[in-house]
Design a protein around this nucleic acid. Structure first.
Lengths: 359, 359
DNA sequence: ACTAGCAGTCTTGTTTATAGAGTGCTAAGT
DNA sequence: ACTTAGCACTCTATAAACAAGACTGCTAGT
């Protein structure tokens, strides 16, 4: 028996299948993707690409099933691609097409209408992914490899309340309210922020911690409160790398026939809603390069079957990265999904590099 | 025939029903809420609160149906509350209980563990609402009645990029990247931000617009770019009042029997995902006081039937307000939902007033 | 090596029968 | 004038039986 394929070890030797078997497998996947109905020999024959009879096709189908690329939900039904079948399709059979130029242009155009606002970019990316693939999309904000301080600002809201705004190196902004133990003036706040800004410079969290000089300096009460909060904030950023998750197109997926009944929709919703699931899955993506495909949970993720993910890291080479991609039924149009995800990742790469990468 | 009840005009005269009819209607709603199965005379009898025979109950049920409080999905099935029935239940019959003190304490405790961070509050509120009511929750950020400037900051990211951070009166923070036409220094940026900060003061958008003085002042290129962006940003805030929507517990609702099949789940998803639907619904809530209940769309919202909303505005009296609440099947536990929504709204009121309200 | 033909298997849809839930009505009781 | 026991009736839900159809796998012939 062949070893099980998995996301980690998923290359399937191309030679195990004859050209005709490859063609048949391809047709099965394509037809099943369209119709969501098991594909039989007559349907394949009707496709016209094969010049052989249904009997021959049946023989090949039997072989493909034996090899684990297809299965029957029951005797006397057509064939459905197995996870292994999808895997083979994706790696060996699929027509790798790029998004058409008009589509690319249209997408770029939508971005150019936006201001230089990361949040809007993420939202738009999620919307485009969902719309183009007719699946649900996920986009996480790009996060710097190491958390480093950039700037802080203290703003007096009223005499009992101070707004602390911290800007980190990756451009992310964090806010928090502070209650000073005694009334302060905006001038006093400006002094503190100037001092801390020049003190902290652009240092990474580790550097700041190491810098014993900070303790040495005399800090009066509120100053050290601010410093503590800044450090704590940076620590939080370091720990949870998914600051925000944008998602769109859930309604696409709940129209799919495999989700209308059965609890399978809840798998998608769970993945999208429960932060730690998403972190588990996306966490393993971070170090990968290019578009990654997880088909039907593929052994590693027990809680999702019948659900596939097409994901890609994106960001600025070596400095910051996020994840974007789509989630849909195993029976998804992988070609379109992959090309869309790849294009969006590249687009975000270049947008981010243009804007932030000049350093 | 009676006039249709609606969210606007929904008081139903208490006198139309006898005490026994009221009791029966109450039992029907309660039982149906639990079981999701049409309630028949024997079930009502078994409840034990009524000392009469099933035949008598049947007569009363027939009357209640005639009056429009109940209906049968088909002859020889039990009764299901109609929208009117739910309405009457909610207004006249329901046991109005507060959240128990231990529950209140537990919730407050969760908040006190958080920093003074609005975003975290919103998230927690959404989580608590969803968990407590076993429905999906929605929370929108409180937004000031009028958009007013508070502070801006310009931070040099690199020589081709400037981060603009704008803080508005309601404490909301907005960021955007700007590309100066020619390289600038941080010192130059500080000059600009100081100038604009003192110029704009704490003025509302309308005041700024009216202030022709701004045009009069000579502004060199980048300075006016910044000003333009600030104004545009404030305009956007004024137009769309839902800056962010937090939601949780969608998985609760998709376990409900009326949603497992049929397209009814998509109603909930649509309301939660599609911004403009939410704005339509929540928009009418803003001026109301206290907990509002929309049952099964109730005529006004055609796109939702079999879905109910329990919502409440919250915020700082007269200055800022958002909406929080839950969305679930019409067959939801209104008592629990209402008491939870009310408590959370009050809690947020007091938290916000404590922090921001001191002005 | 391929294919026509066919028996066999399984699903799906339809029909029919049955049991059960619940009603509405009537007639009798309080 | 209510209330209630009893019963006929209706409709659903479930199961069983059956026919039609979809595919297959196999065999034998090209």
């Amino acid at each position: 028996m062949m070893t099980e394929s998995s996301a980690q070890n998923n290359r399937i030797n191309a030679d195990v299948l004859s050209e005709r078997q490859r063609e048949i497998l391809k047709i099965v996947v394509e037809e099943y993707t369209i119709g969501a109905v098991p594909v039989g020999s007559f349907t394949i024959r009707a496709e016209g690409r094969l010049g052989v009879s249904t009997a021959t096709i049946r023989n090949e189908l039997a072989t493909l099933e034996e090899l684990g690329f297809l299965y029957q939900p029951h005797t006397s039904a057509g064939r459905i691609p197995s996870i292994k079948g999808y895997r083979y399709f994706v790696e060996q059979l699929m027509d790798q097409v790029e998004l058409s130029l008009p589509e690319q242009r249209k997408i770029r155009h939508q971005f150019y209408q936006l201001q230089l606002n990361l949040e809007q970019w993420m939202r738009l990316t999620a919307a485009i992914l969902a719309h183009n693939t007719r699946a649900a999309s996920v986009v996480t904000t790009p996060q710097g490899k190491q958390v480093a301080f950039k700037h802080l600002e203290l703003i007096l809201i009223n005499d009992a309340l101070v707004l602390l705004v911290v800007v980190l190196q990756d451009g992310s902004i964090h806010q928090e309210m502070l209650v000073p133990s005694e009334p302060v003036s905006q001038d006093a706040l400006s002094l503190i922020s100037n001092k801390l800004n020049s003190l902290l410079g652009s240092s990474a969290l580790a550097d700041i911690r190491a810098n014993r000089q900070l303790d040495g300096k005399e800090m009066h009460g509120f100053e050290s409160v601010v410093l503590q909060r800044v450090l704590q904030l940076m620590k939080q950023c370091e720990e949870s790398w998914t600051s925000a998750v944008y998602s769109d197109g859930l309604e696409n997926v709940l129209r799919e026939p495999e989700f209308v009944e059965s609890g399978k929709l809840s798998q998608v919703v769970r993945v999208l809603q429960q932060r730690h699931l998403l972190e588990t899955i996306l966490g393993r993506m971070m170090d990968a390069a290019g578009v990654q495909i997880i088909i039907g949970g593929e052994g590693t993720y027990e809680y999702i079957d019948d659900v596939s993910l097409v994901l890609s890291p994106y960001g600025i080479r070596g400095r910051a990265s996020g994840i974007l991609g789509v989630i849909g039924p195993t029976r998804m149009a992988y070609g379109r999904a992959i090309s869309t995800v790849r294009y969006m990742a590249q687009l975000m790469d270049s947008l981010l590099t243009n804007v932030y990468g000049g350093e």
